[in-house]
Write a protein that binds this DNA or RNA. Structure first.
Lengths: 240, 240
DNA sequence: TTTGCGCATCCTGTATACGAAACTGATCAA
DNA sequence: TTGATCAGTTTCGTATACAGGATGCGCAAA
């Protein structure tokens, strides 16, 4: 970036981390579309590191399911079929429902207060209805759910959910609820969820979250205009 | 193994795979107990490969949650707290319940028949009650559940479940239901599950599986004599 | 024009080298 | 006795080298 961009002086660490971050971002923003090959040497040169950390980053992405590595073939960015949207929504619903149930008996007062604040802010965004407000809503919504996940204090749960969220993000790309009615329904769900937390009722919180997630699915693109099929070329599938 | 054990001739590939398999096995069988350090160089020498594939294997185990790698510190075999048994059981219950629900509308006749066969065999094992029969029961049980998971045809579901099963296996080590009553209850659940599949009823199948899993939890060690705390030495915890 | 084969090239898997961070344990002061 | 400091050693992260399987293209034959 600066004048000394390629001086290997200022940072000898975290090359692998950097490689992972960059690749993840490139995949998520579509710069590396489905079917694109990840060539270790090229990426290494591109990122200014050696093949070793690039390799590690690719393996990590493969472990998360974003990239396919088969035998000695080049790694390729996975293509996700439309019918997986359904599975991801349901999977997420089950996992986040469990998160909510756990959070119900574990959320501390400050976290609860934080949730209320976020809910209020989301309501404001939903009321505004501008594009910017909608984007803001999405961000707040992510934080809302993340806060609940943190509150659930389930390590394995969080680990299981992570790739699901990542892949869903990738599949739905920039799709976000934009219809006012959906936003308002979400806000309603959030309030109900908070109420369940206040009651410290795991069962209720779980059900509420499940409802919330599955409702989002119905509002989502899985039953409407395609989200997948955005691939320009039928890039020759890695064979066998 | 043979007279040419260290000739690097017969196989130049799959060193990483081998390293992973060996390490996984050593962790699961307790040869590498919780808290043990995984030193790349030592393992490399031990396995007769270089550090590179060993490193890859360790990262893979870390991604699956069996091993902790923090910064530049040595990788260490994770220690699982007793209170995680609960989480794992519930997580597994939610995921396998979803698997059963999906399988209900996807299982083909041959697979269903296979399930019936396994159920019958398990019943025989339960009736026998010998130690061998019990071990056999456990194996059949695993295959039963795996068959359902396959039948669910949910790729992300399977990916999410994998580490959960692996960690649970590790935590419960060699613990298996041995009490006759539990085995019989399991058999009953299996039959009910199969009935739900025959009815092609996702809701029923899901509930049945959830019941089955949570019932196993109650019968399990999480509320009885300790399973953790089997560590002999209080191996100096990796600090910070 | 299409299909199959062979060769040049690319790319990956593994091994090895090297600098830097972390660990060890021995010494010294309070 | 206890706690901190520091130098030697260990171990890791990254870079680089090399061998062999994958890839892709040209050319010949149908």
């Amino acid at each position: 970036m600066g004048a000394f961009s390629d001086t290997p002086v200022y940072r000898m660490v975290a090359a692998a981390e950097k490689a992972y971050d960059v690749l993840l971002q490139r995949i998520q923003c579509g710069q590396l579309p489905s079917g694109a090959f990840l060539v270790e040497g090229d990426l290494a040169r591109d990122l200014g590191v050696s093949r070793t950390p690039v390799r590690e980053a690719i393996r990590r992405l493969a472990a998360e399911g974003l990239v396919l590595t088969e035998g000695r073939r080049r790694a390729v960015v996975r293509e996700f079929a439309e019918d997986q949207v359904e599975e991801l929504y349901e999977l997420r619903a089950r996992l986040e429902s469990y998160a909510a149930a756990r959070a119900a008996t574990r959320l501390e007062a400050p976290a609860l207060e934080h949730l209320r604040t976020l809910a209020t802010e989301m309501e404001a965004c939903a009321a505004a209805g501008t594009e910017l407000a909608t984007a803001c809503f999405a961000d707040l919504n992510d934080r809302f759910h993340q806060l609940i996940l943190d509150g659930a204090r389930g390590e394995h749960l969080a680990a299981a959910l992570r790739p699901v969220l990542q892949i869903q993000l990738l599949l739905l790309q920039r799709y976000r609820h934009t219809i006012r009615e959906h936003l308002e329904r979400s806000c309603w769900h959030h309030r109900e969820l908070i109420r369940a937390f206040e009651l410290r009722d795991p069962e209720l919180a779980g059900r509420q979250m499940e409802l919330h997630m599955l409702s989002a699915r119905s509002a989502g693109p899985s039953n409407g205009a395609g989200v997948g099929a955005a691939v320009l070329d039928p890039i020759p599938e890695a064979k066998r």
